[in-house]
């Protein structure tokens, strides 16, 4: 695990010294800023209509906006992690240094997570802006960000695994986007299956949609947290085994 730190630093360096991370952050903030504007505009013109919705809730849940953003921006963060190193061959000097596969996987994952958090950090300003015109429940804000972090961490973990499975960055991108889409569609299954059936149970359990609605309302359900934890740990574990096979095949 001693090798975690140098690899983590190098990954971050590679992200921020090339335009990729900056482009992603720019696109993300542009899109999120637009969403925020539209939501605030919508709620501002709703005076008179009593609603239990708030802009914060709509920003993090109940609308499809969040998922579009995650669907478009998570795959590019993770696509290069392993695919690029295998395509260019730099994986060979990396793996022949005294490093463990787990350290390599975790360091790369941690770097991707930092980029993700870096991307979200400026959105706290939106909440500060809301605070100037009305009341903000900071508990709900906290649980919303926790939800965003957990869901994103799961997606990033899946993206890292996809990047380890192929030498092509583009294929890693497409595979990750597909997995995220499938997870989302499974969640939608909650609304189209018969209540009480097994499929319905499964769909509602894995639903990212329902999860973000919960978290955006300030409900932190441990079942959701356990599911997200599984979504983080399992792909990382598989990725570690995949990295091991490169060394011994």
């Amino acid at each position: 695990m001693r090798s975690f730190w140098p690899i983590f630093k190098r990954e971050l360096f590679a992200c921020f010294v090339t335009p990729l991370a900056w482009v992603l952050v720019c696109v993300f903030l542009l899109v999120q800023g637009m969403h925020f504007y539209l939501l605030v505009d919508f709620f501002a013109n709703q005076s008179g209509v009593s609603s239990d919705q708030t802009p914060v809730q709509a920003f993090f849940g109940n609308t499809v906006l969040l998922y579009i953003v995650l669907f478009l921006l998570v795959p590019p963060i993770t696509m290069r992690l392993f695919a690029e190193e295998r395509r260019s061959g730099t994986i060979e000097p990396l793996m022949t240094a005294p490093v463990s596969s787990a350290a390599v996987v975790l360091a790369k994952y941690a770097a991707a997570l930092v980029v993700y958090v870096f991307m979200w950090a400026p959105t706290v300003l939106y909440i500060v802006i809301l605070r100037r015109t009305g009341e903000v429940d900071w508990h709900v804000v906290g649980s919303s960000y926790l939800g965003v972090l957990l869901v994103g961490a799961g997606y990033l973990s899946l993206g890292l695994l996809m990047s380890a499975l192929t030498r092509s960055q583009f294929l890693a991108l497409v595979l990750t986007a597909m997995v995220i889409l499938v997870l989302f569609i499974l969640g939608v299954g909650e609304f189209i299956t018969r209540e009480g059936s097994l499929v319905h149970e499964v769909c509602s359990h894995v639903s990212v949609w329902a999860q973000m609605n919960d978290f955006a309302s300030g409900v932190v359900d441990t079942r959701r947290v356990v599911f997200d934890g599984t979504l983080i740990v399992l792909p990382l574990f598989v990725a570690t085994r995949v990295v091991d096979t490169w060394r011994w095949s």
């Binding site: 090798s3 690899i7 190098r10 590679a14 260019s88 730099t90 000097p93 022949t96 240094a97």
Partner: peptide, 25 residues
């Protein structure tokens, strides 16, 4: 030293060697 000498093109020589030194303990 692998055959094709794959290196990280976005790093400077000194940075790369410092990274490798740290990686190798």
């Amino acid at each position: 030293m692998p055959e094709a000498v794959p290196l990280y093109g976005e790093m400077r020589v000194g940075e790369y060697l410092a990274f490798r030194a740290e990686l190798k303990g």
